[in-house]
């Protein structure tokens, strides 16, 4: 989407957001991403390897958004890689499998790590995936929602397989990031503020800016 240089347009906010998908292996991170991709794009245009990284232009609440989603599937045991992925992110989707209690514990670990590294400025979504498998569910939705509220995260449930809640999830994430960016970065976080680039546009830059150590 072109930027309006005169600032005369009515809705020319322009944002660049980065969202990272984290969670244990097999919780369906890639499926969520692929489901979103398939719903939004022609998958023929995406090679397999590119499917782990998605960049998309969309409009949410009158703002033009350049959204990149980073999937960490296949690298779950590389806990040292976390910072390389999440630094500079405005949002994180922490995915667990509702039939696997252990995967929810991993989400708790991620919350702790992300709050430490990115402070309060990162928008956290806790996502219970595979709700289609209601019969073998072992993680209680209300408990998970309660935990999310406690740590300042939003709770959503999805089924990538049955395409339940997937598009909604990404839309909610985008609109939460837009709201946060319009308010401006809080001074509470350790990193991750957006930079204003003059005119009337606000741009969140995910490239390393001088003086800040993010990747």
């Amino acid at each position: 989407a072109a930027m309006d240089p005169t600032g005369a347009g009515t809705s020319n906010d322009e944002f660049k957001f980065k969202v990272v998908l984290l969670g244990e292996g097999a919780v369906g991170k890639s499926s969520l991403m692929l489901r979103y991709v398939q719903g939004q794009f022609n998958p023929r245009h995406i090679s397999t390897i590119q499917a782990s990284f998605l960049s998309k232009q969309l409009t949410v609440e009158g703002s033009d958004i350049d959204l990149s989603i980073w999937d960490t599937a296949g690298q779950e045991k590389y806990h040292a890689l976390g910072p390389i992925y999440y630094r500079g992110s405005q949002g994180a989707l922490l995915v667990y499998d509702v039939t696997d209690a252990k995967s929810f514990d991993k989400v708790k670990m991620w919350v702790k790590e992300l709050r430490r590294a990115l402070g309060e400025d990162v928008i956290l979504f806790i996502v219970g995936n595979k709700v289609d498998l209601a019969d073998s569910r072992t993680v209680d939705g209300e408990m998970a929602r309660g935990f999310a509220t406690e740590v300042g995260a939003t709770y959503e449930e999805t089924s990538a397989k049955e395409n339940i809640g997937v598009e909604n999830l990404f839309e909610l994430m985008c609109s939460a990031m837009v709201t946060r960016a319009r308010v401006g970065p809080s001074n509470r976080g350790t990193t991750n503020g957006g930079t204003r680039n003059g005119r009337r546009t606000i741009r969140i830059v995910d490239e390393p800016t001088t003086g800040r150590k993010c990747c």
């Binding site: 890639s30 397999t48 390897i49 499917a51 782990s52 960490t72 599937a73 296949g74 690298q75």
Partner: peptide
Amino acid sequence: LLKDLFMI
């Protein structure tokens, strides 16, 4: 490499 192979 592992991630690429995983995706493939």
